[in-house]
Design a protein around this nucleic acid. Structure first.
Lengths: 231, 231
DNA sequence: GAGCGAATACTCGATTTCGAGTAATCGAGA
DNA sequence: TCTCGATTACTCGAAATCGAGTATTCGCTC
């Protein structure tokens, strides 16, 4: 069985919301949106309702009332249980205290950099940096406004952290693009040459590495260190 | 229909791997592991085989051969198709050039900070920072070794980026813990007091905000700016 | 040469996740 | 008063995800 009975982060948000007061699912979703928490925790309706059902089955929340207004669908109001509070407590402690691997899309892309020619990569990275900068500016605008309203920082600290991550990404992307363009990145010449040869001779990159002396005029020491299964 | 026919990042890695040469699925998995790409792209067997099937159905890869060695299960060897190459190309360009929102667990945790008392939060954040520092040290050790072998940096750049992200997280966590402890974070006193009152009086946090003058002796200007659905 | 742990190469089915679709109501303007 | 877009409140089924389980073989030691 999975570590948590309901492991979707949205379930964590549901527990957190119901910890404040009983609500019906749709109300949880609007509250999350209006507080901007949907920027930190992925919210979608399909997941919301299935997660609520799962939390109920696990005994973390319970239906306390169903009301019907006019001809609208019934709204079931849920409240958190004692086990639910314990689960939320444990979960928050884990989220804060125990880092678990996040997978970022840029990381995935970087893992396959050699597939593109250096200049193409540099261009794309600069494009990314530009978009991210706009995103940062937007967030900073919101922060300035909240700060000017004396709105306590704890209520939007996650967004501030987000800015820190985005800044790191922008800086990294810009810097990497620069290093690629100036051949400062160790091995860029080899990388560049590989793509030239592939374009000129129509061979596969793997062929080039099978006979480096022929194609590059040198034997790469590091090639000998690569275990066969990574070839 | 989803933007991509097969959207799991592992599918991207499969396309990237088969772009080098034809392989059978298990071989892809061992190669990803030995190259450490499984640190950047989540790899698990269940997903691997279903993703390979989906890629085949979409025409991005095709079975070229099935071999059987001894009594072992048959291994089906797949190769990438022209459409598959186009898809990989498009996908990599998107991963690099177009940022898409990543959700980090710390961000999710920070979104619910007010639920814990300030000191508890500071403690957990410092615990997190400690663990992350070990992780960073491990990665840096690997990088030093690869650098000393002259192993081209493009082949492990994603891991270097990972270190940049982890560093940001450590710095942020340490700094935030410090700001909480020293009441430098705007609103920390209010936050601290809230938890004291909840502990002393046994009331709900929401009740305190319903009559701030009574509990805090002041009226919070920012409270009036909070729209009712965020209450 | 028997025993055993690691590696090989998957399979399976139970959850989870998703997001488009639906259907009613409300409010603003023509 | 009629219309039309936005909001409310959810449903549904297809697709994705997962990770534990299985069965074989290899290499090593005792």
């Amino acid at each position: 069985m999975a570590r948590r009975k309901v492991s979707n982060p949205l379930a964590f948000a549901v527990l957190g919301s119901l910890g404040e007061r009983p609500m019906h699912p749709y109300e949880i979703s609007t509250m999350l949106r209006s507080r901007g928490k949907d920027g930190s925790i992925k919210l979608n309706y399909g997941s919301l309702y299935s997660v609520v059902t799962a939390l109920e089955k696990a005994g973390f929340i319970e239906a306390v009332e169903t009301v019907r207004e006019g001809n609208r669908p019934e709204r079931t109001i849920y409240a958190i249980t004692a086990q639910g509070r314990a689960e939320f407590d444990d979960w928050l402690a884990e989220l804060l205290g125990t880092p678990e691997k996040d997978f970022s899309q840029l990381e995935a892309g970087l893992a396959y950099l050699p597939a593109f020619a250096p200049d193409r990569v540099a261009e794309l990275l600069e494009q990314r940096a530009g978009v991210l900068e706009q995103e940062i500016a937007k967030l900073k605008g919101m922060h300035d406004q909240m700060r000017s309203q004396q709105f306590p920082e704890i209520f939007w600290i996650e967004s501030d952290f987000r800015v820190a991550l985005l800044r790191t990404e922008v800086t990294y992307a810009r810097r990497l693009a620069e290093r690629i363009r100036t051949d400062d990145l160790a091995g860029t010449e080899f990388w560049r040459r590989t793509h030239e040869l592939v374009a000129e001779l129509g061979v596969q990159p793997a062929d080039l590495l099978r006979d480096p002396v022929k194609y590059f005029g040198v034997d790469f020491a590091w090639l000998r260190e690569v275990p066969p299964e990574a070839r």
